[in-house]
Nucleic acid binder design. Structure first.
Lengths: 344, 344
DNA sequence: TTCCATCGCGGAAGCGCTCTCTGGGGATTT
DNA sequence: AAATCCCCAGAGAGCGCTTCCGCGATGGAA
């Protein structure tokens, strides 16, 4: 191809024997157009193989028909092992899936943006302001990320997946992580466990803290003031060693809440190597309801984290804001549910 | 923002006291411009907060500065469980990571496209031809996908991650899966195993077949004409049950090659429940070197599948083709490497 | 029948940018 | 000193599209 000039509106207009304006009207909306012409124009479109030029359209409408998925992080180079792990983690893909599920039916494009440096963030805000995308779904990965504030200042239609680390007037969608922790506590208590422990995620991750807090408060309500804690890093291996540590220091444990499934899977392995029966001797509750929960043996009882649904909702928030920029900042908090399987 | 008109080239030109053309020259290349003006113009750019309008630029240059990552599949709706699993699988994310690693340094945007229906494929080809993206990195997920051929016919700069299921003159990057199978065979044989078996992936997946073929041929070279095979579906659970089946029918096995790590992890679990020691009684070799390999106990000896690097190379192929459309179709085959850990 | 409101369509003006073409000034050459 | 060349900047023409404006035709009301 390439040598052949692509048909333009003008070509279609000529083929249909009408004006450019009419063709444009037919293609974009049905109002104010004679149904007969309507038909003729569509035939001409088919005949010429016309495809609208997005750039030209964007130029005049000031709409790109694109939403950006922005991953904001402190990592500047791509070979960084963190970034590598980030992409390999289902977390990323599930969010993409959720975002796509609402974008696709609307014919909106997804542009992926990774910003690691402050400079990149500034440029991104400029580009978005210029209309490169109509809005942004944002994954803010580190605690003192300035991007949410910048987006907000620039008046860009954006929403975060996950609560912003700092108080910024921007829409977001989050999970009631504390309620999830409470769910785990109630379930463990409900099945008769009396000596509970927890394996937490990294201390600097807000979601991780909330899970701990919710778990703690629920236990407190039932008269359990204190319980042993081991901190993990959300990895299989860290879960395994945290469980080993917990067992060594507190041999009497009969129930453990683990802040994510991958660590729980590791914990299960640790328990197994010590010949501890699950859930017989120790009951285990995970968090996320990820594939790791299904792949664990016994299968994990876990707190479901509806990441796809949350990403979808975030996208809806962004789309709504694009349609009506005067919309107020809005946040949606999802309620976690307990998925009971074999481990507790 | 929004009320305030965004500065255009014209504004910068006025601020700098030069013409629009000069500003454009400064911004795009350094040739034919007085260094003094150069300086002045950049100051004006800073002062006005100018950001180029991509749509306007694309309109005239016929370049979008965007590459599409296309996932071509037979699934039309987003809530399809297959799509859900696809996004949650590290496979997708790793490819995105690889693609981004080469796009980002060049300032090229990534647009994600999922096409499930034939209609969507046709529209995609039209959109790409119209310049929505300058090229495409394609993941063709089902055997009789027509997209590669369509892309080829339309003369679009594209390359596949993975060999096309049908012979189409299009660039692609693939892994020598058969060589990987051979690697596994040699290693198992080398450590003294004599009664080998294999757990394959789905029969309709080419990569899966190649792994089997390579394994079989290597064994044949060493005089092993036949070996038991169990087919899995690349999932943890299918690996587990395939291993159980294999053990039941062939109790004497001392080495197993599993076509991916997730199944191998399941196989390990099956072995463990039967109190079979790994690698003592049965040695296990996986495939992919994914996180599952590290998370397995014992850690998996596995064939490394450098997906990120392959995706990056595919992207380079596309970029090269965009720069010079006359370039010949080219394919790159990566050599797999064996990563020796504990399981074999 | 006549007048006005309405509706459908074409003409034409740009959206913001790149790039060719042209002109003018300084440097180089004869 | 005159003629030549080169190089740099500005003017202007579009890229393909949407949309405002206005005109003619049509339908209903007087």
């Amino acid at each position: 191809m390439s040598e052949k000039r692509r048909p333009t509106l003008e070509d279609v207009a000529e083929a249909a024997g009408v004006s450019r304006a009419t063709v444009s009207r037919v293609i974009n909306r049905v109002r104010n157009v004679d149904p007969k012409l309507h038909e003729i124009v569509w035939q001409a479109v088919d005949a010429t193989g016309y495809v609208p030029n997005r750039a030209a359209r964007s130029l005049v409408t000031r709409r790109s028909g694109t939403v950006a998925l922005v991953v904001s992080d402190a990592v500047s180079h791509d070979d960084d092992p963190f970034m590598r792990r980030f992409f390999a983690d289902p977390f990323f893909g599930r969010i993409v899936g959720g975002v796509m599920s609402v974008l696709r039916p609307k014919g909106v494009q997804l542009a992926l943006q990774i910003v690691g440096t402050q400079e990149a963030r500034t440029r991104l805000v400029g580009d978005l302001g210029q209309g490169q995308a109509d809005g942004a779904v944002v994954l803010s990965l580190h605690p003192d990320d300035t991007l949410p504030q910048q987006l907000c200042d620039a008046g860009i239609a954006a929403a975060l997946v996950g609560r912003p680390a700092q108080p910024v007037p921007i829409s977001y969608v989050d999970l009631a992580n504390d309620a999830g922790g409470a769910l785990a506590a109630e379930h463990l208590l409900g099945r008769g466990c009396t000596r509970l422990g927890m394996i937490t995620g990294p201390a600097h991750v807000p979601a991780s803290q909330d899970r701990l807090t919710g778990f703690r408060q629920a236990l407190a309500r039932h008269g359990h003031a204190w319980f042993p804690i081991a901190e993990g890093g959300f990895t299989y291996e860290s879960g395994e060693s945290a469980m080993l540590a917990l067992m060594a220091e507190h041999p009497g444990l009969d129930g453990v809440f683990v802040a994510n499934d991958l660590m729980a899977q590791g914990a299960l392995m640790a328990l197994r190597t010590r010949d501890v029966r699950v859930p017989g001797d120790v009951a285990v509750v995970g968090f996320d309801d990820s594939s790791a929960a299904l792949d664990a043996r016994p299968q994990l009882t876990t707190v479901r984290h509806p990441l796809e649904d949350m990403a979808a909702e975030t996208t809806r928030l962004v789309l709504a804001r694009i349609d009506d920029p005067s919309l107020r900042v809005e946040s949606v908090i999802f309620d976690p549910k307990l998925v009971v399987r074999q481990s507790a």
